[in-house]
């Protein structure tokens, strides 16, 4: 069974010329990837989460054969990078650089049919495939207008449609919702989820924590060219061992709150009265594990719960725990 993506110690160093006056220039090196290793399994949505400048696009460009790595190896759909590039190109669907990469004077449909030809689909199949992608992404209304008349969101959707034209088993999406408004972004994520349910493996890069959390099965957090943590979303959250707070409101008898205090996995708990009902505050390092037994214990001791507010650890907290910075800060090298 082929693993969709296996990356071994990928490194990438950019050499850029830095001007110093009129004739002098010096070479500057940017280590954009410092030895990234990853394995992506069939049928998952794998998130690459990291702030701007972390090296996500560089990694994606290497995986899509646009750039050569300085070092390391990768296998995509079982084909070795740099040795079987044509096979990789044929079996991957990619969306890079957002709305760029489209022919503006051509209609959306003409764009899709053209790219279909470059993926070596026979003429009839190109038209059929374009039709089906247009229908699936609801592009029908503007598919036959020149792209230059599209809104930014419409261009993004067409760029996404382009990634589907070769019906590849692996989709590589580089910040596909970057310039979309919230509803369009949600819609696009829904399609990604649907495609994933139909069996496509997805690599999804983003610098938005919530996006990775809601969409991805597993996430690699990448910062300054290195994977600093990876795993399922709950596992990542637990990994930092941060204590969080759960607030429970309702009618909570004293015996219920004392029973909670002795539960395993709870650091502290306190009960107060607010507007005639009780509020129990519980501090725990492992919310997901504790919550079910917490509810069970309370109910078992006659509590009637009206509101439960778990204050969650986010992937942002994970990032902060590892780097001391937030995801919103750009990293420049």
């Amino acid at each position: 069974m082929t693993i969709p993506v296996r990356i071994e110690n990928l490194q990438k160093t950019y050499q850029t010329k830095k001007r110093q006056g009129l004739f002098k220039s010096s070479v500057r090196q940017v280590d954009a990837l410092k030895g990234v290793s990853l394995e992506i399994e069939r049928g998952e949505i794998f998130g690459l989460l990291g702030p701007n400048g972390a090296g996500k696009t560089t990694l994606i460009k290497i995986l899509t054969t646009l750039l050569l790595p300085t070092n390391g190896r990768a296998f995509i759909n079982g084909f070795e990078l740099t040795k079987q590039d044509d096979a990789i190109r044929a079996t991957v669907g990619c969306m890079l650089m957002g709305e760029r990469g489209l022919y503006w004077k051509l209609t959306g449909r003409e764009n899709l049919v053209f790219f279909g030809a470059l993926y070596h689909l026979p003429p009839a199949a190109r038209a059929r495939r374009a039709d089906s992608v247009i229908e699936r992404l609801n592009l029908g209304e503007y598919a036959d207008r020149p792209v230059e008349t599209y809104s930014s969101g419409q261009k993004m959707k067409l760029a996404f449609a382009k990634a589907l034209i070769n019906d590849a088993p692996l989709l590589i999406l580089d910040e596909p919702t970057n310039t979309l408004d919230l509803p369009s972004a949600r819609e696009l994520r829904a399609v990604v989820r649907e495609l994933n349910q139909q069996g496509k493996t997805v690599i999804y890069t983003t610098h938005i924590m919530a996006e990775a959390e809601t969409l991805c099965n597993r996430v690699a957090i990448i910062d300054r060219g290195e994977v600093i943590a990876q795993g399922t979303v709950p596992a990542l959250k637990e990994s930092i061992g941060q204590e969080t707070v759960i607030k429970l409101e309702g009618v909570i008898p004293t015996q219920a709150s004392t029973a909670v205090a002795s539960l395993h996995g709870i650091t502290r708990s306190a009960i107060t009265s607010v507007n005639g009902h009780n509020q129990l505050t519980v501090v725990t390092p492992n919310q997901t594990a504790v919550l079910p037994q917490l509810i069970q214990t309370l109910s078992g001791h006659g509590a009637i719960l009206q509101k439960i507010t778990p204050e969650e650890v986010t992937l942002e907290d994970v990032f902060i725990a590892h780097t001391g910075r937030t995801l919103a800060e750009d990293t420049a090298q």
Binding site: L66, D86, L102, L118
Partner: peptide, 14 residues
Amino acid sequence: ETGTLEAVYITPTS
């Protein structure tokens, strides 16, 4: 400049 050069390079057409 428009990004289409990269877009065609990621296809299997040489």
